[in-house]
Design a protein around this nucleic acid. Structure first.
Lengths: 253, 253
DNA sequence: CGCCAAGTTGAAACGCGTCAACCGTAGTGG
DNA sequence: CCACTACGGTTGACGCGTTTCAACTTGGCG
């Protein structure tokens, strides 16, 4: 998975907005590959903001450790995602990031990002739009934490993962690999690990979710989507036409 | 309150990053003032994304209406805030926005924003950083919704408002005007209106919050800050040095 | 004066957290 | 190869925080 494969960038590319130079520039963010182990901490909260990362393989998550001893997981990162843009414009990290399983990441610097912004307004717009989309996912979880019950939160969480994984061809016959422990899922959804277990059983009994260790199957994804009233614009949509027009014009100027 | 008064822009200005042209450009976003009534809906969910707004007077909020009949309030906007950047890069609104009390707003178009981006990378960076800061506040609420009890959520909410209002000189003797109903507060914090009432009583009994109708006093703001372990970097911080350096260099080039 | 929205208070129900015991599986070392 | 251990997951009992429903109060406003 490269950044060129993301919805936004593909959208820009298919409309001829990206030049060959743009593409090399974008790929230059992914030159520095590094293998990382399961559980490895990429950075802690309050660390200096020095770099960002593209995930090539494996899953990661951003988190906050709270004073009351619990943890809130903010976001799950999958291959192709950019990590760290949350901290763009801050001097200190607002959240820690750690790997869930082993994988490969490509770190790049503040400097590199600035250069990219300066050299291609199309890429700048694309990266900003990607960042906004990530935050839209966060907003969606905020809504679920505020106003929905455990089974709806879990169903929504799984369906969102399903959609994101499908986009990167990591779904086979409605099933996918999910390396998260139930404790981690609880930390993401604001639930206890015990209740996550019960909720899984509940969804299984209703025929909505099958699970065997780290393998999850959604026998009827549409039924799940209806249950959680899933609005997939925030996850699947490419840039709007007006946006692309502007970028095309700007490229010529 | 103008955009030039925001923490980020003031930071840029005081470091000499903003030119006179930049300032006129920024102020040009606020030429179109319009008076709006209490409760007026600026736009609905799923409406086309055509414009953004600067709030000059009054409070506004963004919200989602949910299938189960409840509402989740995402963010409270105060004078000087930009509304709508959440939808940047989408063709349809992800959330509705309405006024809480009467006020004045200044709408500006996608087009205007693009022009501003094209003509001043400093302003572009400033607006992006402002947007990222708004998202950081959302993230903070996500954490509170996930892992904290009602009294902590309310305390955090009030203290954040207190800090934001202080920045725009809307706090006198630790007290401020707050036009929100308890139902709206509940919709923001994921609580029922009834429980918000009980929680206010609780905080009052502990001497942390006094309230008379729409006037709130925090007798001991520091005590509140300790209770919620408030981390104010996400709200008060200006752009990091490295960022400003880049902008200064870029301006000359 | 009377109406209506907003806030308060009480009682009961319920969802979820917590604690604890137990189970299955994978990994480890003898 | 097989015990031993550690970890993640499951299940039950119980308590607590929050919701819900309902009755009542208060203040603002036509």
């Amino acid at each position: 998975m490269t950044l060129l494969d993301t919805v936004v960038m593909q959208g820009l590319d298919s409309h001829g907005v990206l030049t060959a130079d743009d593409k090399t520039l974008l790929l230059s963010l992914e030159l520095n590959a590094r293998r990382v182990t399961a559980g490895e901490v990429l950075w802690q909260e309050v660390a200096d903001v020095d770099l960002f990362c593209v995930v090539k393989e494996g899953w990661a998550y951003s988190y906050r450790n709270l004073g009351n001893g619990s943890m809130q997981i903010l976001k799950i990162y999958l291959p192709g995602d950019i990590i760290g843009m949350r901290d763009f414009g801050f001097s200190r990290r607002l959240a820690g990031v750690a790997m869930i399983n082993e994988g490969v990441i490509c770190p790049f610097s503040y400097q590199q990002l600035f250069e990219l912004f300066a050299r291609s307004s199309s890429l700048a717009a694309g990266i900003i739009a990607t960042t906004v989309r990530q935050q839209a996912m966060l907003t969606e979880r905020l809504v679920y934490l505020g106003r929905y019950a455990a089974h709806e939160r879990l169903a929504h969480f799984l369906y969102e993962l399903y959609l994101r994984l499908k986009r990167i061809n990591a779904v086979e016959e409605n099933g996918f690999f999910m390396p998260l422990s139930q404790e981690q899922i609880g930390d993401a959804l604001g639930l206890s690990a015990v209740h996550v277990s019960r909720t899984f059983s509940m969804l299984r009994d209703e025929g909505l979710v099958e699970r065997d260790r780290q393998h999850v199957v959604l026998p009827d994804p549409q039924a799940l989507a209806r249950l959680v009233e899933f609005n997939d614009t925030y996850i699947d949509e490419s840039l709007p036409p007006a946006f692309q027009n502007f970028l095309s014009l700007n490229r010529i100027a």
